[in-house]
Each structure stands twice: as structure tokens, then as C-alpha cells.
Design a protein around this nucleic acid. Structure first.
Lengths: 181, 181
DNA sequence: GTGAGATTTGAGCGATTGCTCAAGGTTGCG
DNA sequence: CGCAACCTTGAGCAATCGCTCAAATCTCAC
């Protein structure tokens, strides 16, 4: 997953996978039937990881909006210590792979949609908790939120300057707060 | 440029370039010395096109902020008629090409920085015209603006749903307006 | 220890990659 | 027209691509 995430589908060669998996080509094709299929599995794993991260944040924090705040801030501050992850694997896939590889392309879009739905239900919870205006257009706000998070992660890769990123994150949170009832 | 823009560096083969340029490999290598060099030229052309678009908008509109508004809205409404362009070539390049291809990678970053500087000077002009608060942190706002525009263009590729995109564009413009003096 | 079944191995497949260069075409000047 | 200077051509190079498969190796019940 990591290799595909960093280098993309076409940028990753079988040699890369061999050394990353410590497997010879034969074993790779016995375990996963093709490079494409392995890529699809990597996306699936990434997808579930993302959902887990979101759920963990929700369970750790007291309110849905607080969960979002800490999530957004953790992107800005680098998340996992010194090793900063590339931007969203699914986003990179949608942007990178030519749409004539329909299997990969549409699966990436599907997962992105699913994550957006997860954001939506978190926002709905926030409405119920009175943290957001009851008349908020959840669908639109979820889309907005997802695109903002993606933009932040992209910016974090372009220039991992902590204060700037934190300011950006704060802008997102503040703007999100402006929908508060 | 178009081919590289759509399919990325590694996703574009010499065959693609041959048919796009209507040139045989020999001529391609006589005119541009390598695939990498041709890619760099494509990026340079894209960069200058972008600057021209920005300057044209500025000259057509009455004020700097109006120029920004029309630019942002034109991204949402599809810009050039029916054919929607992929997201920013430079952004895609930074996200796609592995950083071990340092020439390509750093040149893409350089151009992105240069465009951000162009945004910054447009914003400075807006301050002088009294359209923005004199105490605005131009550098930060330029970064914010660029990341917002990129996010909008990415979203436009993910789902080219006009009303949604226009709403997104309006959010950007409104938020930009909140910096008004 | 032995043999059957499962797994791993890596040489090497045909195809494609980015790229080269001798050969042939074109152009413009006298 | 002849000749020199340029440009285009495309077969084909070495390297790499994703991938296969017979043979070697491992695993484990008896």
C-alpha cells in the first residue's frame, strides 16, 4: 500500500513490489493475481484505514465537531511524528491514473464517495448535537469538508511549514464553525 | 502539453507523443532532446499560459477582486465550453512524479510558487484599491487562495456537477470577501 | 523418515519502454 | 540543374515492463 501510495500505479514497478513485499514474482502472482488486483487491495486497505481513523477520532473526542477539529489539526501538525504521509491515496489515484483504466479509476471514486458519506453522517450527528445549524445542507458541507481536507493535505506535501499549515487548518475549522446554529 | 497534462509523465509513452506531435521518434529527439526535456517544456508552456490567463482576467475586469471572482467562477462553470480541463498540471506533477526525479519535481514546485507570487501581487493590488484590509497577511492569503482554487479544480474533475461547483466557488469568494476592510 | 501437498523460486517469456542513427528526403542557393 | 546543408524517417537497440511455469524447497501427517 505504501509503495503504491507514494509512487502511484504506473510509477510502481514489479521490482519495487518485489523488494517491498520480499517476494519473488511467482509468489506475488500466486497471492494476488495481478498488479492491478494488488493495487485494488491496497486501495481497499487504505479506505478501511481511513474509516478507522475517523471512527477512532470520533470515539476519543467528546463531540462530533471536536473530532473533526482534532483530525484537521493533526493533519497540519504532521500526524505521525516525523514521517509525513503523502496526500490522500484515493485522490492521487483519481488524479493520476488515466480514466481508461476504468476498474481502478471508478473504485477510487467509489471509496472517495464512501468517505464523503462518512463525513456527512458525522456532520448529521453534529446537527443533532446542536453543534451545527439544523438547516445546514449536509451533502454540500460534506463535499466542502472533504475538498478542504484534501487541499490541506496537498499543501502539507507542497510545503510542510508547520505554522502556515496550522493557520490553514484553523481557517477550515473557523469556516466550519460559521455554520454553527 | 495536453497529453502530459492528462496522462502524467510516466503515463505518457513515446507512442502517445509520436501520434500527438505527428512526428517520428528521430524528429522528436532532434527537436527536444529527451522525454524529460519535452515534459519540462510542456510545464513551462502551461506556466506561461496560466500567467496569461491571470493577466487577461486582470485587464478585462475593473478591479483585482473582480478579476479573482470571475476567474474562480469560470472554473466552476467549466471555463472553455464543453471541454473541461484536468486540474492544474503543475499540481498533478507534484503529486504524481516521484521526488527522485528532482528536475521535474522541483521545477513544478518552482512554477507553483511563482504562480502563488502572482496571486500575492494581485492581492496586494486589492489592498491598495481598498478592497482588502490593509493588515491582511498577503502571503498566507495567497497560499490559501491557491489551495482553494486547486481544491475547486480537483472537485470539478471528481464530479463536474455545475450547481455544486458554483456553490463551492461562491464559498471561496465569500470567504475571500471576509478579509475585506 | 518418508511421501504428498502446498509454497517459493528465478530464469526467462513476449511486449513495450525511451532512445539512436544510418539512410533517404527536402530545401534553397548558385 | 548540382550540390551542400538541413530535416525526417523508421527499423531496431538495450533495458525494462508485467507476468508465467517447471523445478526446487518447505511443511506436516503418518
Amino acid at each position: 500500500m505504501r509503495i503504491f501510495w507514494e509512487k502511484g500505479y504506473e510509477g510502481t514497478s514489479l521490482k519495487d513490489l518485489e523488494s517491498a513485499l520480499s517476494m519473488k514474482p511467482g509468489s506475488i502472482y500466486a497471492a494476488f493475481k495481478s498488479k492491478e488486483n494488488l493495487f485494488l487491495l491496497a486501495m481497499e486497505r487504505y479506505f478501511h484505514n481511513s474509516l478507522n481513523l475517523l471512527n477512532d477520532a470520533r470515539l476519543t473526542c467528546e463531540s462530533p465537531m471536536q473530532a473533526l477539529n482534532t483530525m484537521i489539526n493533526s493533519i497540519a501538525t504532521g500526524g505521525s511524528r516525523d514521517h509525513r504521509s503523502p496526500p490522500c491515496f484515493l485522490l492521487k489515484t483519481v488524479l493520476t491514473t488515466s480514466p481508461d483504466n476504468k476498474t481502478v479509476f471508478s473504485k477510487a471514486r467509489f471509496y472517495l464517495d464512501a468517505i464523503r458519506q462518512e463525513f456527512a453522517s458525522l456532520l448529521r450527528e453534529a446537527v443533532q448535537a446542536g453543534e451545527l445549524d439544523a438547516e445546514t445542507d449536509i451533502e454540500k458541507l460534506a463535499m466542502w469538508l472533504q475538498s478542504q481536507i484534501n487541499a490541506l493535505r496537498v499543501e502539507a506535501q507542497r510545503d510542510p511549514n508547520e505554522p502556515r499549515l496550522s493557520w490553514l487548518a484553523q481557517e477550515i475549522i473557523t469556516h466550519l464553525g460559521s455554520f454553527r446554529s
